[in-house]
Design a protein around this nucleic acid. Structure first.
Lengths: 133, 133
DNA sequence: CAGTATCCGCGAGGATACTG
DNA sequence: CAGTATCCTCGCGGATACTG
């Protein structure tokens, strides 16, 4: 039996859906929309990185979560893991072609988000003040 | 004090991050990447829908989660909620311009996902069989 | 350095019952 | 019809300690 903390993050069970393309969307968003994957992907867009290098770049991530996130991305074929059998050990993580392909639409979404952040935050505080009674 | 189940889904606390645009990405992905938002947005791309209409279209969603999801989208200015004071009551939900704007990059991501689903699923089963010892 | 191994709290989200 | 009100479960994710 595989211990809990190394088991790759199972994608949440998706609802039975008529439109199977929506399931595909949700399946990818479930991976990419988790707490850390986007950060890792973005950090890897400019070349391969080592484990602790990523850990330092992504402020606040725990070892456990970085391992889990990387395993999940590796499982989906978005990231490769290469071990150099040196002492001390060295492990490089790098985006695959598939991963780089994914990074593009994710980046598009990110640019949309960045461009419309003022509107969204405005709507939020507006909504919150309207409902603060 | 506002009861728990109606309080709009608070976006998860994002890590302190150097690159503030990454926070923006993550902030939107946290909204759009939750379990149901994408389904709701997609269902609303072809015109306004009523509450139970959405509930029927989105197989498996609970009343509670539909309410919460819609409130979250409304809070972010992505969806409007219009109440018709009839008996029985009727409530329409519709994408705002902002929401339609978001739907575009989301759809792009979805199309990428759909196009590369075979590769991803292949990578998954490959990974799983390699690690099934 | 790059992980494993455990323990644990908290909150997302489901099930169910009730209401204007 | 369109929600509220509660209760409860499950698993994400943090903290900490240990290892090849």
């Amino acid at each position: 039996m595989k211990p809990e903390h190394i088991r790759v993050p199972a994608l949440p069970p998706l609802p039975d859906q008529d439109h199977s393309d929506c399931r595909a969307v949700a399946s990818v968003l479930a991976r990419v929309g988790d707490k850390w994957s986007v950060f890792v992907i973005m950090m890897l867009t400019d070349g391969p990185k080592r484990f602790n290098e990523l850990k330092r770049m992504i402020n606040g991530i725990s070892q456990r979560m970085l391992t889990l996130t990387l395993r999940g991305l590796e499982r989906d074929g978005l990231v490769t893991r290469t071990v150099f059998p040196t002492i001390p050990p060295r492990v490089d993580y790098e985006l695959t072609d598939l991963g780089r392909g994914l990074a593009a639409p994710v980046k598009a979404l990110g640019e949309w988000a960045f461009a419309h952040l003022p509107e969204i935050e405005g709507a939020r505080s507006n909504f919150d003040s309207r409902n603060s009674d």
